[in-house]
Simulated assay, not measured.
Amino acid sequence: MAYYNRVILVGRLARDPEVRMTTTGAAVTSFVLAVDRPVKSVDGQKTADFIRIVAFNRLADFARLYLKKGQLVLVEGELRINKWQSRDGTNVTTPEIWARDIRFMEKKAAVEESIEEFEKPEEFEKPVDEPITDFDDIIGSERDSDGQNPDEPPF
């Protein structure tokens, strides 16, 4: 009999991905995905589940480079249950999703807007006398002939 273990989640990153390397040099990136539950309470309170996602190798590098706190993403993977014994002798069980695919669910402009809005300070600092207005002089060497930055994803 064949077994089937597939999970598809859509949610927002609760924090920036954390990166580490295995002893063999493979990249491992983990992050927490906040997935909203349907509103079922009388008072209309929203609740969310916070699910740990783990990505390996090239997908880990992708997550490290392009994912940021607050982004809406779709994660496809499989459920893994980790079991171990803590120092005080209690048995601990934690679920996590081992990602097979991660996809953006917002357009790039919407992501940039939400990140800017998310990172705005409560109080604005004193304006600089002469702000930089021509960014092409600063980052012009990093752009291709078509005007795209090669370090940015093509979407």
Rank of each mutant, 00 (worst) to 15 (best):
V111P: 01
P95A: 09
I115S: 01
E96M: 04
E106H: 14
I138A: 06
F135Q: 10
I115W: 06
D101F: 10
F135M: 10
E117F: 01
E106S: 14
E116Q: 06
E125L: 13
A110T: 12
P121V: 02
F118V: 04
F135H: 11
P131L: 03
E117D: 04
D137R: 14
D134T: 03
E112D: 13
E130Q: 06
K108A: 15
E117Q: 02
P127H: 00
D88G: 14
I115G: 03
I138F: 12
D137S: 15
E122Q: 09
E119L: 08
K120L: 08
V92N: 06
P95S: 08
T133V: 09
D101I: 07
T90V: 06
D129R: 13
T90K: 05
I132C: 05
K126W: 11
T133D: 01
K107T: 09
E113W: 15
D129V: 12
S114L: 12
I115V: 13
I115F: 12
R87S: 15
E123L: 12
R87W: 06
D134S: 03
F118H: 15
K107P: 09
E117K: 02
V111C: 04
E96L: 04
V111Q: 06
T133L: 03
D88E: 15
S114G: 04
D134N: 07
N91D: 11
M105S: 04
D136R: 07
T133K: 11
T133R: 07
T94L: 07
E123Q: 14
E113L: 15
D129K: 11
R87K: 14
E106I: 05
A99H: 00
S114N: 10
A110Q: 14
T93Y: 12
F118E: 11
E96I: 01
I139N: 09
E112C: 11
I102T: 01
E123Y: 14
W98N: 08
I138C: 05
P121M: 05
D136F: 03
G140D: 04
E119P: 00
A109Q: 08
T94D: 05
K126C: 07
A99I: 02
E130D: 07
E113H: 15
E106N: 11
M105V: 08
D101G: 11
V92R: 08
E96Q: 15
E117Y: 01
P127R: 00
E125G: 08
D137N: 15
P127E: 00
T93M: 13
A109R: 03
D137I: 11
P121K: 03
